[in-house]
Design a protein around this nucleic acid. Sequence first.
DNA 1: GTTTACGCATCCCCG
DNA 2: ATGCGTAAAC
Length: 775
Amino acid sequence: MSLFDELDAATPAAPAPEKPPRAKVSAAPPPEDEPEVLGSLELASRLNPSQLAAATYEGGPLLIVAGAGSGKTRTLVHRVAYLVDKGIPPQAILLLTFTRKAAQEMLGRASAIVGRRAAQVSGGTFHSLANLLLRSQAHLLGYPPGFSIMDQDDAESLVARIRNDFPEVKRHKRFPQKGAILNILSQSINKDKPLVEVMADAFPHFLEFAPIIEKIGQEYRAHKIQNALMDFDDLLVGLETILRDHEEVRRKIAGRYDYILVDEYQDTNPIQARLTHLLGRDHLRVTAVGDDAQSIYAFRGASFRNIMDFPNIFTGAKVLKLEENYRSQAPIVTLANHLIAQAREKYDKKLVAIRGSGQEPRLVAVQDQADEAGWVAARIEEFINEGVSLDDMAVLFRASSHSFDLEVELVRRRIPFTKYGGRKFLEAAHIKDFLAFLRVAANPADSLSLRRVLTMVEGIGAKGAEDIVTWVAGQREKVVDLESAPAKGKAKKNLAPLAALLHQIAQPGEELAFRAQAVANFYFDLVRDLYPDDWPDRQSDLKEIIRMAESETSLRTFLADMTLDPPNQKRSGPEEHKAQGLTLSTIHSAKGLEWKIVFILSAVEGRFPPSYAARSAAEVDEERRLMYVAVTRAEDKLFIMLPLGTIDRRTGLAASPSRFLAALPEGAGTSLWQNDQEIDPSELLNLGGDFGYDGESFSSSPAIPRDPERRPKPRPANPRPAPGPALMALPGMRVSHPIYGPGLVLETNGPQAIIDFDHFGKKTVTMQYARLTAI
DNA sequence: GTTTACGCATCCCCG
DNA sequence: ATGCGTAAAC
């Protein structure tokens, strides 16, 4: 049986449907001279010489430094196929990727080349590998095999409960919030640095609270052990502890994998680097693939130094570079090279464009976010009319909230889209509620989930739940009969159905589908009381979750999957899976993907880089790499949006172009556009006269505060189709909405109105955008 | 003493 | 849309 059996079951035998290999990538030029070693695969006709060398390398440790668009995934897929074809048992190949979806796609593609055997390859993320191995070895850490995994939300609420018990918190107004505390604790672990050092580096303003945060950390750890809870960091640390302290276990586990391949190595942290070494040091057949220029996860402890250090840790490692870019037209590659040239420390490599020249990347100046949304949506409509498929276009942004205006605009124009990167589905309260029942069943010690479940009962609040949790903790049997829990009156009465449910779903050996159905029977009606405004939407989400539970057999696996690999896509309608439409994505979630036409939103100071992420040179470097990743997603056309009239709420300053664009030299191959005309930067002054153009290039100095009196009224940067006179709706009025149809205005609140639509229920709409008509 | 309802501010990236 | 603090209701 292979390691990731649940993955095998889900791996399609055919190539992954999402992103079939691009024709032009497979058109990689055939090598000049035929290599001697060739399996039955005819790899030489599919790969260029550098790719071929990497895919078929037979020595020890190998580092493949692969530039953006250089066929990195293709090479890795072929290396897997090569090894399988060579006769290496697929289970003995370990492929570690950044997401499990990436592993599934690669193995799907390898299967297409070399047959179904490739689907048996052990693939997944470091976290999913750790989860699986720890289930059988948890006792070595003092954990039961049924331990729960906390997502960030769970971890934060645990920290919050501990935090608020410290009297200092109330005395000091500026005491760090739960998120900040967890961040500090986590970085200390992931970066291998003492807490005080992390704080001095990244949180100097909280330094005075270091001793208290230290104490909070101790309590947090104690709590996790008591409740059999592990956070994401614990999975990695736990696995490392076992491999380090139990040599016979390490040898057994490491002995399963003859070849180890790690993708996206630039986004691994020091613990993951050590895990790689612990697993691979016996045979050294370790391949790491990555691009230091695309390292964008420092905020969670990743270090691009890992990839720089690989040849030191695995001495004698062969370093191969892939520098030919097959993805983007030449001007886009030129811009990318100029962007990354500003970075301080990197492998010496430069992308060479294979494709010919095309349209220069355009910087598009607009007034504000509303104009930006209007311009992008209008341009997308034009492309649609020209016959471009929605699947070939994407809008990328630094932060999830940057696309809000655009989302409204797309709905208005009925352009279908899917948004990736927002943390929506799993974080929704009703989903967490639903999973909490199952978590109690899987791990009776999980008081976090028990508390959550208890507070859903009418009549039980924070105090009542706490009393019962304390009572449960004092019982010998953890799977207790809540019927006899301390509660009275209404609480006692309402507790009975919950007690019955928990009794039912905690039976060992029960089918997962049965348990999920039991929870649904209990919770479905509750949703109506808990969320009177939008319970139908939430109920359909629950149906989706139940559907997912039905395709899984083990309760533990299901819960681990939901936490480690949550459906990361914003809620989409029931049958919208196929026609997913336009892609909206954070840059982080767009890693590794490509589209013909790409828009980058809000490339202005304060937003990209955001002020909170540009406090040190290291942070600025990371943001620059993020811009590099965004730019290199584009194949043919790239539009970088500059909403230059936006005023920063906190500083009161008007926006200036992102420093990464401002620093571009002459000849970086971009052009500046406004009102659909190419302009000279000096003409931008028309827009407000304060974005620091100094005659040579954009200055990166802060813009001058606007004087609202003197500001020349700029003409709209891009006249949207007339917004139309906003209908002033009044409560009680019947109105019609272009998308939702007829409805009754319930109330108005400034620019917004709450309308009960006949066919869609209650929605809040902004009258200015909604194009309401009276009926 | 608890629970619940309501108004208010806030929202970065992710396994 | 969620998380928090305060005030009314049980």
